[in-house]
Write a protein that binds this DNA or RNA. Sequence first.
RNA 1: CGGGAUGUAGCGCAGUCUGGUUAGCGUACCUGCUUUGGGAGCAGGGGGUCGUCGGUUCGAAUCCGACCAUCCCGACCA
Length: 480
Amino acid sequence: MAKNITPKEQDYSQWYLDVIKVGELADYAPVRGCMVVRPTGYAIWEMIQKYFDDAFKETGHVNASFPLLIPQSFLSKEAEHVEGFAPECAVVTHAGGEELEEPLIVRPTSETVIGYMYSKWVQSWRDLPILINQWCNVMRWEKRPRLFLRTSEFLWQEGHTAHATKEEAIEETKKMLEVYRRIMQDYLALPVIPGEKTDGEKFPGADNTYTCETMMSDKKALQAGTSHFLGQNFAKAFEIQFQNKDGEMEFAYTTSWGISTRLIGALIMTHSDNDGLILPPKIAPTKAVIVPISTNDEKMEKEIMPKADELKQKLNAVLGGRYIQIDTQFHMRPGDRFFSHLQKGVPVRLELGEKEFASGKLRVVRRDTGEKFDVTWANIEQELPVLLENIQNSLLEKARNFRIENTHEATTLEEFKEILEKEGGFIEVYFGGTKEDEKKIKELTGATPRCYPLDESEKRGKCFFTGAENSRKAIFAKSY
RNA sequence: CGGGAUGUAGCGCAGUCUGGUUAGCGUACCUGCUUUGGGAGCAGGGGGUCGUCGGUUCGAAUCCGACCAUCCCGACCA
């Protein structure tokens, strides 16, 4: 068995890699910057997908599939978009043994090819809105890859919608941001801050970008999901036009929004400890593991295992899925068996040994706190769901408190620098600067604007950097 | 693409400066016995073209050169 993860204070990235390793989540692929998501990691991704697909049913979005390869010329049709993405595109120049007339790019995102298709699909105001989502892989040749957080190829969900009016498109952008916030908070136990991106941080080609920002356990910020209001930029580039009720031609308003396997990275970096992964129950593919223990083979076979099976059936029925696993690693000693599940982040361990069997109980152990107590077989059906709920809430609370403790206010650049050096974390300021000011602040301090928080969008004050009055409330931090 | 570092068994490393039997250690893995409720003990065993290519030499993991790859700090970003 692997030993503890024992990171040094400054060795955060090694700790992160160790958690991924002991959790058996992912490996490096043979291609630089690419990731192999192992079954345990993929199961988490499937849980995330499930919650989003459920949400899409409520919001009226449907899934579809668009091509992996996009003609290079498509990218150039939107000026900001090509500038933002061209440097990181993988390009296919040969196929079928010949050089292609026009190179193809491996999609870094699908606004262009979907915009092209939408232009063919939309004629009348009756064709709108189009509410489509796609689950797929995309490729961005980033300079510095990092497992889950920034891999060359990553899995994601990209929603692309087209609307007849600006108001409706903006509403859609905010609606999806709220879906993100809710799922991240309620299921992944990530206390995110929804907000609007600054000019310097918004998506290439968007009028506005909204984001869910969250704090990792090293106090750095991570952008967990974004929702973009694209205005008519892509509609004009790809001629998504429709005839309105008055018979006039109009360009549509489009949106796009996405979350990626980065969320798994966020999960790891928010909740894990030095023993490995800690998964919030709602996102854990295995919510509890039953560990039958006995040195007596006959007793194991005839009494303990049948009881374990019975409990598994009952608990699965209560939880409404196949969420309970029975540990059958009988070649291992009990301590090793416990530890293997602990490292993988299984929220609850249910020990069924000879002692428990004799008294009709289970020894219940929480992954997040290590707390242990006994519950009778009769009561476990009621108590497990409550316990899982408690763990879920307590992980969210813990992460939220951590963020609050590590959020400070600054009114001047000096204060800003001092906080960043001494404490790190999020810094709340009033900011009224330009893209260029953002750049200067980054050069001076290493921190970037994360967002203008939506919850405090009414607040106004004096900019800590330019001194401009009536500036918006913003959060700055060092980020991934 | 700049600055720094590193490539030796699945993982973590020693050996390199000062070239010399069959390349070592910890851990993981396999077998056996003893153990068995928070991460085992003893014994035996398998696994390496020492990143790649070239050079120097009687002889290279070790010296020289080129290349490749990875990691960290930047720039870039979901």
